[in-house]
Design a protein around this nucleic acid. Sequence first.
RNA 1: GGGCGAUUGGCUCAGGGGCAGAGCACUUCCUUCACACGGAAGGGGUCGCUGGUUCAAAUCCAGCAUCGCCCACCA
Length: 909
Amino acid sequence: MEEMSKSYDPQAVEPALIDKWLAEDAYKRRPGAGDCTVVIPPPNVTGMLHMGHALDDTIQDAIVRRARMQSKSTRWILGTDHAGIATQTKVDKKLKSEGVSRLEIGRDRFVDACWDWTHQYGGIIVDQIKRMGCSVDFSDPKFTMDPAYAKAVRKVFCDWYHDGLIYRGNRIVNWCPSCTTAISDDEAEYRDEPSHLWYLRYPLSEPVNGQSYVVVATTRPETMLGDTGVAVSPKDPEKQAFVGKTVVLPIVGREIPIFSDYHVDAGFGTGFVKVTPAHDPNDYAMGVTHNLPMINIFDEHAVVVEGYGRFSGMNRDEARKAIVEWFDENGLLDHIEDINHSVMHCYRCDSALEPWLSEQWFVAVDKLKGPATEAVTSGQVQFHPDRWRQTYLTWMDNLKDWCISRQLWWGHRIPVFYCDDCGWEDACEQDVDTCPKCGGHHVHQDENVLDTWFSSQLWTFATQGWPEHPEQMQGHHPTTCLVTARDIIALWVARMVMSSLYFTHEIPFHDVVIYPTILAKDGSRMSKSKGNGVDPMDLISMYGADAMRFGLLTLVTSNQDVRFDADIDKKTKKLLGSARTENAKAFVTKIWNASRFVLTNLDGYTPGAPQALTDADKWIFSRLAKLCAEVDHDLDEYLFADLARSLYTFFWNEFCDWYIECCKGALRGAEAGEGATDEAARARLQTQRNLVFVLDTALRLLHPAMPFVTEAIWERLPLTPEQRQTASGEANDLLMLAAWPDASKLAPMVDERAEHSFDLLCAIVGRTRSVRARYALSPRQELAVAVSASAQDAESVEQLREQIVEMGRLSSLTVGVDLPKPAGSVSSLDESLKVYVELSGLVDFDKELARTRKLLEKAQRELESVDKVLSNQGFLAKATPEVIADKKEKRASIAESIELMNAQIADFS
RNA sequence: GGGCGAUUGGCUCAGGGGCAGAGCACUUCCUUCACACGGAAGGGGUCGCUGGUUCAAAUCCAGCAUCGCCCACCA
């Protein structure tokens, strides 16, 4: 076995292990007892891995790695999303930089360019996922535009179309004039912008109550060209006289009616609202109710269409300026107010969206939302943390029909075919070129493509052979869990539940794990434009993948967002470091070094079962058994911060700080050469076996969080082939496939008595260290210690005598029941022991005297406060017996401590 | 407007009726043969504010303040 290098270099070890795992086919889907199926939330092909992905994938890997070690049937499906708008935007930009527009090259060549882009960049994120150590099935990646996937998408569309769930309609949609596509409500972003409220005068056809005009307030003066009415509130008595009258629309000269509608808020503006049904969702609703004409004044680029004189051909901003000027010049501009106006923006290109009347495809949701609600209220689908259930249910409750058409070229084209000759129309799973009705050949397909979420909603089953090979889903659907971010609970999670229930009659997953959003250190969202984003690959190159993963897991609490502590150079935007990840890196190094210590102390080792020789062994076994149960619990409940904390505390603060130190004596014992006895040699061997056992088990438990360093060490452990077997008993030499520790088998090792004994050791050793530090004694200064204890505790201390003397650097250790205070000793109460450290001649007792008096005062104050509680009748009557007993015990301990201090003061005075 | 979260040491965060915690940073000591990416010992907090419930509140409840997120609306 290769020697362990003095320092651990993740940059060398990690890539080599990835190659090894892949070469040995360890990532492949595995048969087994029990199932663990996870689909990776498909990142956009255009993307680079960001912190959200890194966290998402780390969580999934931890889940999958444990399941694999348990020899469950694991299937972790990899894939990417074609991301319609995102990809089209990038390809558009690329073409533009080459001096071509997509309109010039046409649809087919543009789609080819998108495929080229996909092939060129789709692999980047997959490589990054691989570098993180994610044990996803790289051999069978999915893509939402794969031919098989496309078939699934098409079947879903056709079935819903024929079942009457998909329909076409004229609707106001959020139109992006730059992407020239409809954007769903969920994809639009509101942003407050300083703007104005323009008060415009609309002349009445005939005066009303002596008034010759009404004043309307608008933030969009340019849309007045399309006005077909003026509305007032039915609750506004003063305005009722105007209802039924008409105004003459300036510029256009159209006579339009004044009517009353509940949409109008009498208190806003003047109480008169201009109504533009083709360019505002509310006005559209009023237009439908009142049968108003819907006049579209903009083309797809938000440029004023023909027929409006000099205003035609102007874009929105030009038209606004020109129209306001016109009103001003003609004395119809009443006044202008400043206002903060929230404007919808395209979440991709950030252009202001235009409410625009157009023909779109919709999914009717009334039949889908009931079952999808039921799946969650019944607990079949569970959210972790549970509170996200409410987000899901609220959204489901308010759900409106879903606009699924997008005016893009990149995506699944809507499979509806039209016959130009006879007007036939149908959704078809196969392309059609001859009309089945009239036999004509003038058949064309709908130009629109589907919303990206329409295809990704099928992700759990379309990636598993549905609909052509349903047997592939057998035993792997519903999937185990979906790990994702909270901002797509509605966009994606909810839609997966709806479509899965409809088409597979199953929920898509049992558990939905929502992790906190990672914010920058200042609490703002990480974003490219702000330059405050952290690239996970930078973290990996600075600290290694294990450290990044572990650091990320410590962040996964039930919070809804967390700040990542990375410092970024403001000028260069370079990552300077992250304390959290740095600490995780130190932990990786600690694991390496502790293991190196164990492995370099194995001379004469032969494998054998662990067996406790001392309370120290019993203690660490007990702690290990508890850790194992804790780790299982944390993974079962998706409590990753707790998982990381448990592992860290056990390995560093218990195993390294105390147990290994405790073992050093026994390991050295037999090295004394000729003097070594058989007994010392036996103790040494058993200590080695115990160390290997604890280390081996700990590495297995650490593996899902930190796969690399644990695998690198484990291959060097002197284990038998049986010990290396998989959980199902197959031969194996990878930790990744080795059997997961069985908590129920370790449970008998829990030993509360031994844990108490070991606490006594820590107390005595800790006290001597503390005394040395206080009096600036050399760490090498040996001290004589006396301990007064109960009979049982005295026995425990005797049991650990060797370890205490060694670790505490004692010249002598006297143990007894009711032992008197040795002269010249400093005393203290630690745990249930009175510890006397003899310091005659070593220190200045005046100093100690002053310190003791101060402590005594504090203890007396404490005693008073405890006595106050204990004399409180309410407390005695209502507190639980345990709490009262604890309090009494505390009082006794303070009293004892005071007694000790008094004795000490008497001694030193 | 509706909902949710946060507010605990200088920083990033745990905890969740009965002794206030971790990591980083800070102070002192230690290069002793696993580890200075280390060890040991320390200092540092009125748990956002105001009330209430309770024998007991950092923890539960109400209100307030600040920060943030989601949903809806915005002529």
